[in-house]
C-alpha cells in the first residue's frame, strides 16, 4: 500500500539523487577542465560543504513527524 510516508521517502530520494548528480557533474568539470589550483580548491570546498549540508538535510528529514503532518493536511 502506498502511504504518504512512502511517497515522501521516494521524493526525498529523487531530490537527493538529483543533488548528488549535479555535485558530481560540477566536481568533474572543475577537476577535469580546470587550469591551475583555483578550480581544484573550489572543488574541495564544494565537496566538503555538500557533504555537511547533505548530512544536515538528512538529519532534518528524519526528524519529520509524518503522522502530525498527515493530520495537519487532513485538517486543512
Amino acid at each position: 500500500m502506498i502511504t504518504a510516508h512512502f511517497l515522501a521517502n521516494l521524493l526525498a530520494v529523487v531530490v537527493y539523487f538529483l543533488f548528488w548528480s549535479e555535485v558530481f557533474i560540477i566536481l568533474y568539470h572543475l577537476t577535469r577542465f580546470g587550469i591551475g589550483t583555483q578550480p581544484k580548491r573550489y572543488a574541495a570546498v564544494f565537496f566538503l560543504g555538500s557533504i555537511i549540508l547533505f548530512l544536515v538535510s538528512v538529519v532534518a528529514y528524519f526528524t519529520l513527524d509524518f503522522s502530525t503532518l498527515s493530520h495537519l493536511i487532513k485538517l486543512s
Partner: peptide, 8 residues
C-alpha cells in the same frame, strides 16, 4: 527540512 533543501 525545507530550509536545508533551500541551502543545498
Amino acid at each position: 527540512f525545507i530550509s536545508s533543501l533551500w541551502m543545498l
